[in-house]
Design a protein around this nucleic acid. Sequence first.
DNA 1: CTTCTGACA
DNA 2: TGTCAGTA
Length: 360
Amino acid sequence: MDRHSPKDTLLTAAECASRIGISVKALRVYEAQGLLAPLRTEKNWRLYGAEDIARLNEIMFLKQLGLSLSEIAKLLSGQTTDVSRLLEMQETLQNNRLEQAERSLRLICSLRAKCGSGDRLSMDDLLDLAKEVQMSETADEFAWKRYVQARPRTKKEPDSGELEDCAGEYRFDDGSVLRITTARDRLRVQLLGQPACDLFCEEADHYFLKVTPAQIVFSRNKAGDIDGLVLHQGGYETKALRCETGAYDKAERELDERIKAKTPFPGSEQLLRKVIEDHRKGQPDYDSMSPVLRSLAQEQIPTVMRELERLGAVGSIEFRGIGVDGFDIYIVDFENGRLEWGLAQAKDGTLTGLYLRPTP
DNA sequence: CTTCTGACA
DNA sequence: TGTCAGTA
C-alpha cells in the first residue's frame, strides 16, 4: 500500500536534510537504526514523505531531550507517529522551559543585585542557585517520561496465574494504600476515594490504564513473588511495597469516619492560610508537596497568582467538610470574592492535593 | 553532478 | 556524525 497520497511532495535526502537543517548522513544513520523507512526510487534513492517528516519531528524531539538513538529506536518501534500527541508534548515542554527560565532569571537577578551592592552571597543563596541549575537540568527528563507514559499501548493476554500473583494491597511512601483486585480476566486498581480502574496487560508484570496515561509495573523478589509496584504517571515513577491485607479497608474506614465526623487534617486551616499567602507571593513551599502536586503547582502558579491578586486579602475561612476523596474543603472569603479550596495531606504531612475553584 | 554503501575517524 | 572511496 502506498503510504503517500499523489499530491504529497516527496523530498530527496538532500532536500530533506537541508530544509530541516540536518545532514544527509544523519538521515542515513537514523534509517540504519530503524527509526525511519523512507520510500525508494527504482535507482534506490531515498524519498521522504509527510509521514517520514512527522517521524523525523518525533526523533528530533526525543533527541533534544537527551535520548540516544538506540533508546529512541526502542521507544518508537512498532509505533506510528501521533502528531497531535507530539505537539501536545512539545507545548508542555516549552511551557515548562519558559517557566523554568523565568524562575531562574528571577533568582539570578536578585542574586546579582545582591552581589552588585557589595554583599557576599549567603550559603542559602548559593544552595538555591545550585538547586535551580539542577532543576533546569532534570526538567527535560519529566518531558520524555511523560511522553513514554502517553505512548499508545496494545494489550496482550497475561500469563496464567499472573493476575492472582499481582492482586493485593500496596503502600506508598506517603502512607496511602492502593488495592489491586482480580475481576474476571483482568486486574483492577483502586486508590482510596477514587473509582476503580481496569488494568490491561502489555507484557509480563506490565499493566496500563486506558482512562489516563498511566502504567503499573509490578516487581518480584528473588523467590519470584510480587513484592511491590511502580506507578508511572504524570512523568513520575512512584513505588509502593506490598503491605498487609486489610490496610485498604482500614484506610477506607478511617476516611469514612473523617467524612462523617467532619474532622479536618490537624492544622489544615492554618496550612491553607499559609498556602494562599505563599501562592500570592509566587513562592509556594514546594518542598512540602508531593512531587506530582509540585509539578502541578508549578504549572498553575501564574494563573493562581493573578487570581489571588484580583481577589485581594483573605477574610474569613469556613470549613465545609471532607470530600469523598479525602480533601478538606474550605470556603474562603476574600476582599473581592470567594473561592472553594480543597487540600489533602498524607500521613506524614506532605501536601498531596490542592485545588481551588469558584464556589458553586 | 548526485546518491548509495561501507569503512574509518 | 563527518569524511572519503568507489559505484551506479
